[in-house]
Write a protein that binds this DNA or RNA. Structure first.
Lengths: 104, 104
DNA sequence: TGCGATGCTACGCGTTACGTAGTAACGGGA
DNA sequence: TCCCGTTACTACGTAACGCGTAGCATCGCA
């Protein structure tokens, strides 16, 4: 754990899952790898599969037919739209914050 | 409530407070205004003052002498550094996600 | 045949988000 | 002068989430 992460609720697993699915369908373990590459923090199974379940319940992602022992998921249209909105907001906040830090 | 916010834990009050303080010391109510302008979501007092307390406990912000009925806070050096790190990570994730959405 | 990596489920604890209610002081308008 | 809305914060409770741990099964490889 480092930085603001100790405060909890900063890793935003759900959003990272959506980002992970943005370049194609993946199953859980592959998402973990992708997220680890993106953020240097590998979410544990409790975090990951909990968030996946909630995202599916909300209709942001949907499961594809299971193959092998893998349950792949992909973004729904709703999920894609929500992700775009959220990422734009995120980028705005990040830019604003960094600008403020630079000026001050 | 709109978009991913219904999933909870997406508004990240603590980070928004830090961004809010990045352009100068503010008291709680002023942070609410600033955050509302930034995100179109005004955090309620439970959210705001809870997050402020935790940030102070962790040494990311510190309180200035109370004046009138206002308790102003400002970023500490630690808070400033943590915020910068976090915002950079955030911008990277946002950019990556948006790029992926554009390609797909 | 053992062992690590893969892939997921189940469970529980601590913490957080957030709504609601309550307090108090101030200023402006009727 | 009496409301009433705004400012500013405190206190409290509940639901939800993050995250760690444990467990189970399969696969490949040495």
């Amino acid at each position: 754990m480092s930085g603001l992460s100790q405060l909890g609720r900063f890793s935003e697993p759900a959003l990272l899952i959506l980002v992970s699915l943005a370049d194609g369908a993946k199953h859980g373990y592959a998402m973990q790898d992708d997220i680890a590459a993106l953020t240097d923090e590998r979410p544990g199974p409790g975090t990951l599969y909990g968030a996946i379940r909630r995202l599916e319940e909300h209709g942001y992602i949907e499961s594809l037919p299971e193959q092998d022992r893998r349950k792949p998921y992909r973004l729904t249209d709703i999920g894609r739209a929500a992700l775009q909105t959220e990422l734009q907001r995120m980028r705005t906040v990040a830019s604003t914050g960094l600008r403020r830090l630079a000026v001050a």
